[in-house]
Design a protein around this nucleic acid. Structure first.
Lengths: 115, 115
DNA sequence: TGATTATATAAGTGGTTGCTTATATAATAT
DNA sequence: ATATTATATAAGCAACCACTTATATAATCA
């Protein structure tokens, strides 16, 4: 039998509330596949930049994502060291992959690449 | 590798939003252990009856729970035939069991028993 | 039948949320 | 230095949400 470390209701319900928004759920779904910067998310979600930034701020505060600055871009990725990561991960297995949306960005030449 | 049937973002985010409320998360957590009627939940949660009823209405509308009338009581239980049940179930494994709260009710003689 | 018990519903309200527009900060390029 | 690009923050606002109180519905009991 598999044993899972439990999260307290307070913290867990906050994670669920945050993922209970279609936009944020899609963002996290995208980030499960690869890290993204804000401007890529703006493009994919067809939303305003401030709106996306505000969502990222909430996801970061809940330790669902981490950020990394690279030049003028800030890349967000899933925080897989977080206490809430196991919960986030097992939730996301129930949603379709968003890979093709990122592929679509690449085809349009809008992917931010900086290595 | 384990394959999971995916849920669309629309439906899934609704489930997450509903479970993103501390009260409802606790209710579902309780129901994972055993069915309960409204008056039991009122006792355990120390909330008003209309408030609990309104939460149950939402959980039922999202097919997270089912109801069963027995005399004057209405018992709610997890809807394990629902499309969203796999998601609900895997979320709930991350939260502590609520068994002792139901045990507490029994000790106080407040458990509704009707067989 | 009338009283009691369990539950649901309706209406009102204060707090929260997700967007908008405007502006600030910060890195890069010319 | 100045302009451009990327991101964050602030303020305002309409929609939503979880509670409250009051009332309705429904089953049981005396």
């Amino acid at each position: 039998m598999t044993t899972v470390n439990t999260i307290d209701v307070e913290k867990g319900s906050m994670v669920l509330k945050l993922l209970g928004d279609k936009t944020r759920l899609t963002i996290v779904s995208l980030l499960m596949y690869d890290e993204c910067c804000v401007c890529e998310l703006v493009e994919i979600l067809e939303m305003s930049q401030p709106s996306v930034s505000q969502h990222m701020k909430k996801l970061k505060a809940a330790e669902i994502v981490k950020e990394r600055r690279q030049g003028q871009w800030i890349f967000y990725r899933i925080n897989n060291e977080s206490e809430v990561y196991p919960l986030v991960k097992s939730i996301m297995t129930h949603f379709p992959e968003q890979r093709e949306k990122i592929k679509g960005l690449e085809l349009k030449g809008l992917r931010v690449c900086c290595n």
